[in-house]
Amino acid sequence: MEPTGTADVSIVIPTHSEKRWASLTRTIASAHAQTHRATEIVVVVDHNPEMAARVKLEFPGVTVLENAYARGASGNRNTGAFHTRTAFIAFLDDDTVASPTWLAHQLVPFNDPAVVGTGGGIIPAWAGARPTWMPDELLWTVGVSYTGMPTSTAPIRNVWSANMIVRRDVFLAVDGFRIGFGKLGDQNRPEDTELCLRMSAAAGGRWIYVPHATIDHEVPADRSTFGFLMRRCYAEGRGKVQMAGLMPKDQELGAEKDYLRRTLPRAVVRNLADAGSGRGMFHALRAATVVAAVAAAAWGGGVETLAGLFEGSSSTTTVS
């Protein structure tokens, strides 16, 4: 099936550091190489004027903007998205490479007017060997698709901003990504999940996951360590508690609960069984990693919950 009409789409690529120049170059090249041509490719540079000038000089066919908001990926993406005029806006990160048919495949679900956004499969491009202790169910910690996600085109609660297409009118109706709520420094709050929930609620629509609309996402060596995994899970625990505080009281984190109650326990049982049947002791390490990841996320969630309770009690205290 072909995308809706001409399906005019712009691609927004946020970036911030010349350390990623080589990967940014690959991302832009892959955006240009789409079988479904984008109307405009927009690169937004996060408070780095020198890099913005270099992008303008070396990529004359690309629109270059500077982040109009506070530092961070949310403001960076919004700057580019609000500039566009096409019916659809696609987002790529500056360390990804989109397959040539990425746009074509991922635009198809928009034939249904109830679809407010789509996401696609994200394949890890490891800088080195994949850690043997890394279970498939925890690949989300390095920003790629993981076991537990749909394996064919299907509705999904949320997708990731590294590989996302939105209806521009719905995106604008909810004011885009929430500024100040996202990934910056040691904070790792799920700004893409929060956006997906607001867009679905505002339009009464749904998101569709298209696993064969793929991009490759670089996984540097420093993100392939057990320490990074623990910090990422801890930050995710804190971020999910913060996100829950922004959601309506009747809107629960059902996907997270299902993941904790079903997907992860199955991962532990399966890996222990594989280890016991002689398929490799690394499976035992994967089972232990799942347990450690849950503990780290719970710790982060507990810390954030206590912080919120303390802040709430402090705000109600009066000085006589």
Rank of each mutant, 00 (worst) to 15 (best):
G308A: 02
S17A: 08
A129F: 13
M199S: 04
M199W: 03
I156P: 06
Q34F: 08
A173T: 02
L246I: 11
P135M: 07
D222R: 04
A70N: 08
Q187A: 09
R261N: 14
M164K: 13
A307W: 11
S74T: 15
W133C: 00
C233R: 08
N78P: 00
A203F: 04
A87F: 06
P14R: 01
K183E: 12
S315G: 07
S74G: 12
D258M: 15
T86I: 07
R198Y: 00
L306N: 08
A173S: 08
P109A: 08
H32V: 15
A81V: 06
S200L: 12
S161R: 12
E256D: 13
S224Y: 06
L172M: 07
V64Y: 07
N271V: 04
A7C: 10
Y259C: 11
L184R: 15
F228S: 06
R279W: 09
P124F: 00
G119Q: 02
I13T: 04
R168E: 06
G204W: 00
R238N: 00
R130I: 01
G278F: 01
S74I: 09
E256N: 14
A296G: 00
W133G: 00
T132W: 06
N78W: 03
E256F: 12
G128W: 04
A70K: 12
I165G: 02
Q106D: 07
R77A: 05
L65K: 12
E256A: 14
M281A: 13
A273R: 09
F59H: 10
G176M: 04
P14S: 05
A70L: 14
L246T: 09
P3C: 05
Y234F: 13
I122P: 02
T86L: 01
F110V: 00
A203E: 08
T318P: 07
G278T: 02
A90D: 02
V319S: 15
R232I: 04
A125V: 08
V291L: 14
A104L: 15
G302V: 01
A221F: 11
M243W: 13
V268G: 06
W207G: 12
A7V: 09
I122S: 05
L172G: 06
A98C: 02
H16S: 14
I13W: 03
G254I: 08
F228P: 09
R26H: 05
P155G: 05
